[in-house]
């Protein structure tokens, strides 16, 4: 099993972070990504390296879903088998004097118990499973995927996927977040965060009818979610359906919970709007 189509970007000096990202971004369809274009987004001069959080952040900034995998070789191999190259973080030296390094796993051979890796200046290395696991352990077996927004990881777990997509939304890539929410809702149609996230993105992209529909689905599937009712009430009020908006906002307030201050404000705003002639 080998993803031969994943291009190689050679790493110079301390740039294994940008080089690894360039390879997985290219594989995810961002053909313009190069070491030069990604260095300003992820390389930290004062550390002469790239932080894990920023590897995830840079992935979101180009409009891809950044998905950290569970710390298991099996999961990495399953993702590669599904066609997605995986970035791993290794410590090549000692625990006390670590030399951290990112590499990209693009294939494996179960019979030879080897992974196929693009790393530093080498386009194709074969490492035994035990070699990889020894250098991988000190990062807590950390690895990540960069996925096109319409694709789910092969090892996808719902709470991790919604967190990853909500992060893409928070990073401001709304169109991609919308596509990613739709993809996750195709798999988990009743996902609360998926439905609320989709509604919020539709609202931000000014498709109020779609936002209302998403929040309605959320409130029907999760009648205890004050957030779903609150956001639906707000959108209904903007659409001019004030009587419906008031009823929904009253439900939101009646559910209480930590968002009570916001739900009360929403209801007050709707009542004030209804009093206007």
């Amino acid at each position: 099993m080998e993803l031969t189509q994943v291009p190689f970007h050679r790493q110079d000096d301390f740039l294994c972070g940008p080089a690894s990202l360039a390879m997985v971004f290219n594989a995810a369809g961002i053909s313009s990504a190069t070491v030069e274009s990604l260095t300003p987004m992820v390389y930290l001069p004062g550390r002469q390296g790239s932080l894990q959080a920023e590897m995830l952040g840079a992935t979101r900034r180009v409009g891809l879903v950044a998905y950290p995998l569970a710390p298991r070789l099996e999961d990495v191999l399953r993702e590669v088998a599904a066609g997605t190259p995986v970035v791993v973080l290794l410590n090549l030296a000692l625990k006390l004097i670590p030399v951290w390094h990112y590499a990209v796993i693009v294939g494996y051979d179960l019979e030879k118990r080897e992974v196929i890796v693009r790393s530093a200046k080498r386009e194709r290395d074969e490492w035994s499973f035990s070699f990889l696991e020894y250098f991988w352990q000190e990062s807590g077996y950390w690895s990540m995927l960069a996925l096109p927004p319409g694709r789910l990881p092969a090892t996808a777990r719902e709470p991790d996927v919604v967190t990853a997509v909500a992060a893409l939304e928070q990073a401001g890539r709304l169109a991609e977040a919308r596509e990613a929410y739709r993809a996750l809702l195709a798999r988990w149609p009743e996902s609360l965060i998926g439905l609320i996230g989709l509604g919020n993105v539709e609202y931000a992209l000014k498709d109020l009818a779609a936002a209302e529909q998403a929040f309605r689905r959320a409130s029907e599937a999760h009648p205890q979610s004050a957030i779903a009712f609150n956001n639906r009430a707000h959108v209904l009020a903007i659409l001019g359906r004030l009587a419906d908006a008031e009823a929904v906002a009253r439900t939101a307030v009646s559910l209480g919970g930590p968002s009570l201050p916001e739900t009360r404000k929403t209801l007050e705003a709707i009542l004030a709007q209804r009093k206007q002639p």
């Binding site: 790239s50 932080l51 894990q52 959080a53 973080l89 090549l92 030296a93 951290w100 990062s139």
Partner: peptide
């Protein structure tokens, strides 16, 4: 203190 992946060539000895 958090890991910053780099692998500079000057650290070859440690590796």
């Amino acid at each position: 203190s958090l890991p910053a992946g780099a692998n500079g060539s000057g650290l070859l000895v440690l590796i």
